[in-house]
Nucleic acid binder design. Structure first.
Lengths: 162, 162
DNA sequence: TCTTGACTAGTTATCTTATAACATATTCCT
DNA sequence: AGGAATATGTTATAAGATAACTAGTCAAGA
């Protein structure tokens, strides 16, 4: 459906995109013996509804409406589980979370955040990660985790105001 | 003194490092007609005291001790000024701020955050920025700003626990 | 000199984001 | 069934950030 996870900014069959990601996540969870419980699963579905990042409290509101707990830890714990197991990412720049578009694959995501429509795409970041490691090497720094995020305009939003 | 801004992890004459950065900032402010007022200057000095990122409230506490206002906007405004004019950077991953090691030069910083000692270095990021733009290009995304941050171990902290 | 406008600094109040700590329930294994 | 581990829920609070208003500063022009 979206093998590069880069279709966020292109028009696509989002219902299929969402269902595919969810099915994939379920398969990965099954394979790894992870418990994709109702709250966790629902949190992931909420993130998958759009190619945007959502704040923890946005997710919490949605969960609460549907009968889950309405206290912050409910959302934070579900999101933490999703992030920890690679089903979602945390977007530091936005204090927000987004569903992962490559669940199960080892990858370093590069987040492209549209400042006009709040759309979010996950570009392949292997090359960026490599050059980051090259920048860190001469200083003797050993990289463990990285956050690579860009803010700008997605294709659809470039027409409007330029 | 530290032409690459990468000495944070190396032993160096920090008093000179700090004074140099401050003098540089003053010169740039003078040249651009910016007002490096007492609060702003003091906030910068506080950031320059160590190669670590400080939270806005840490800076605020220090400012308040010295007779400046003790309400959050006092610190946030001073820090916002410093960031806006390139005297400091915001480290999203830490919800914190750090003095810029290349004031006045156009540059894309890559932040290297040591998870053991909280040290922070600013590596040159031109190559990383270029490959980020290359990753964004195929999606038609126009990059305006970017945050590139890595967490790991600095040279001094790699000996201890490996 | 006076005054006007831009900017700076301070305050109160509030909002948003995140976590600690503890109680209860569920699930898994033996 | 018993017990350990895991998951969910709650209360309370910590930590980070901003809106909106007031008042002081300073420089440029009438």
């Amino acid at each position: 459906m979206d093998p590069d996870g880069t279709l966020a900014f292109a028009s696509h069959d989002h219902a299929a995109c969402r269902d595919g990601a969810l099915a994939h996540a379920e398969a990965v969870a099954e394979a790894k013996g992870l418990r994709l419980t109702p709250v966790r699963r629902r949190a992931l579905e909420i993130l998958l509804e759009s190619h945007q990042a959502l704040g923890a409290y946005d997710v919490l509101d949605r969960l609460a409406e549907e009968g889950f707990g309405r206290q912050p830890p409910v959302a934070y714990r579900a999101l933490e589980f999703l992030v920890e197991h690679g089903f979602a990412h945390r977007i530091r720049r936005l204090n927000a979370f987004a569903a992962c578009m490559h669940p199960g694959e080892a990858h370093v995501p590069v987040f492209l955040i549209c400042s006009a429509c709040n759309g979010l795409a996950e570009a392949p970041g292997a090359a960026v990660a490599a050059s980051l490691r090259q920048a860190a090497g001469p200083l003797g720094f050993r990289v463990e985790r990285m956050s690579i995020e860009a803010v700008g305009l997605c294709p659809a939003c470039q027409g409007g105001s330029e």
